[in-house]
Design a protein around this nucleic acid. Structure first.
Lengths: 232, 232
DNA sequence: TCAAAAGTGTTGCCTTTACACCCATGC
DNA sequence: GCATGGGTGTAAAGGCAACACTTTTGA
């Protein structure tokens, strides 16, 4: 039976390996996208997969995820959060690998990611994500569920939108995450009432002749008091 | 620097170990409780801690958690869910250990747990939980947060309550989880409207002369349609 | 007959939903 | 002057929060 060592090469150690995999989600052109990589090693070389690597002996697991992200994309100091650990005994053929999955959120146009070229990486719209190797499909599915969950009470727009954004962009982001459409008037009214946005005296004229006001996040305001209605 | 091997004994391997720890939460006498164990090995022998153990090479991580739970308490086929993985490089002194934490939910009176005697284990009410070793305090804190989260949309009562229960018991459970009190009339109205309970033709007369009707869970009904109000 | 827990309704307020038209501008 | 996306208000319905008294029955 084939084995893979800590650097991803073949090896015969009968041991338990541990790695992290990164689910990199981005927002661009009003669409949620996932960054995938062409696998560089056998088995399954050339197939689409998440990027991952073994954890080093003297490295925090969070740091390992950040390191892998940086090595493969150049992204640094980007929002990243532990998702879940995948550890079925046969999840990786020929070798026992436990993988701690992390997910990252970025606004795609904000970042230059030259490193992705050498990795043969590509952004996929969420409806066009191909089949992935191993249990990576499950990881991606879980990441989208988690994103929906986080979107309810955390300012994920801070990570996925540019610093200044229009109301329309914000709405498209939430529509992409929840895969639905919202009434524009109700959306503006609701978001407005949360007082989490600061209106700027600038307009983005790139999408209309009239121009749309730009907003920034204001923070705070993400906790609600404990009422029955918020529980069930 | 001292090392600990996969069986928890001292050892000099310079390697990365992986374990699971179990946060065992129970409900009894209208109180949420946590099962803690007196640590049997050095260092920190005799201090209160969660129960945990290394993961075996050919064992799913979920199975490892179930095994550890069974070995230490006798609990079998009990609800258990992955919580989070803890992997700071210095979380365990003298040895690199990554721990995948799981949390279990049980109705305490439903279970006989003889094995806990040989482990020197005790249930603690949530307000009386002592300081724990390593980062176990953090794990417990995270477990309670997760429980709150789960209580919003999952029928956790199924795990924490007996099969048949009274409205009062259900309310006390939610009050314990959310650490607050609810108006009794509003609680009955709200829970009633969810249609997740089936009223039985039996009464529990153990807590009042009048007797309280018993209920069972009906399942389903835990998903809500996607409206703005459910998002923010 | 009384103590102790079980059980029940109404009202005001606020939030959510549904729905359609005018505005500003560059071309 | 017209096409394009930006921006706005109102009414009806439903959900939530606040609030106090009656019922049952065993001792």
């Amino acid at each position: 039976m084939k084995k893979i060592d800590e650097n991803g090469r073949y090896d015969n150690n009968e041991k338990l390996h541990i790695a992290t995999d990164c689910i990199i989600l981005g927002f661009e052109e009003q669409k949620l996208k996932l960054l995938l990589f062409k696998r560089k090693i056998e088995p399954m070389k050339g197939e689409w997969s998440l990027i991952g690597s073994s954890i080093r002996l003297n490295e925090d697991i969070d740091a390992a995820a950040q390191r892998i992200l940086k090595e493969s994309t150049g992204l640094d100091k980007v929002f990243m959060q532990q998702l879940k650990t995948y550890g079925k005994k046969n999840r990786e053929p020929g070798c026992r690998f436990i993988s701690i999955a992390y997910y990252a959120l970025i606004n795609i146009p904000d970042h230059v990611m030259d490193e992705t070229k050498e990795y043969d990486a590509r952004w996929f719209e969420i409806d066009e994500v191909p089949n992935l190797i191993l249990d990576h499909d499950e990881m991606v599915k879980d990441a989208f569920l988690q994103l929906k969950q986080d979107a309810r009470h955390k300012p994920i727009g801070l990570k996925l939108l540019p610093e200044k954004f229009t109301f329309t962009q914000l709405q498209k982001l939430y529509e992409a995450i929840f895969r639905t459409e919202f009434d524009e008037r109700n959306f503006r009214k609701k978001v407005g009432s949360l007082k989490m946005l600061k209106k700027l005296n600038e307009k983005d004229k790139s999408t209309s002749r009239k121009g749309a006001f730009l907003y920034k996040f204001n923070m705070g305001r993400y906790e609600k008091s404990l009422k029955l209605g918020h529980i069930f």
